[in-house]
């Protein structure tokens, strides 16, 4: 890496860091607006942009070889496939509350249970 390229790269890293902090505060600010489902979408969307900055600039995916990019894409693709397949199960299964989700904890063991 020559001097000019190093300086350009260092400047890129500085701008990426500032952008990440700005996005963090944007994410924090958006959480205090009443947007309904938009709150969750804004939080996730900003997280996706932030991770894209880290992946492309900090982790060097933008200048990586095809092999490295294929590995990264395969990991993401496999995860999305598993999310979709799990979603099919959970979306079609009836939702019944589990015992531990009742408002109170289970009652303490009374004399009847102890006798058994």
């Amino acid at each position: 890496m020559n001097d000019t390229r190093f300086k350009r790269h260092a400047l890129q890293l500085l701008l990426a860091w500032l952008a990440l902090l700005a996005l963090m505060f944007a994410s924090l600010g958006s959480a205090y607006l009443s947007l309904g489902i938009g709150n969750a979408i804004a939080g996730i969307a900003i997280a996706v942009v932030k991770s894209a900055i880290v992946l492309l600039l900090f982790m060097g995916l933008a200048r990586a070889s095809a092999m490295v990019r294929i590995v990264a894409a395969t990991a993401l693709g496999t995860w999305l496939l598993l999310v979709a397949l799990s979603g099919v199960d959970y979306a079609t299964r009836p939702h019944e509350p589990a015992a531990f989700q009742t408002p109170r904890q289970l009652p303490s063991l009374g004399p009847t249970q102890v006798q058994r």
Partner: peptide
Amino acid sequence: IFLYPLLYLVERH
């Protein structure tokens, strides 16, 4: 980066 909005920014408003 993903844990932050999911754990800290839920229903803050």
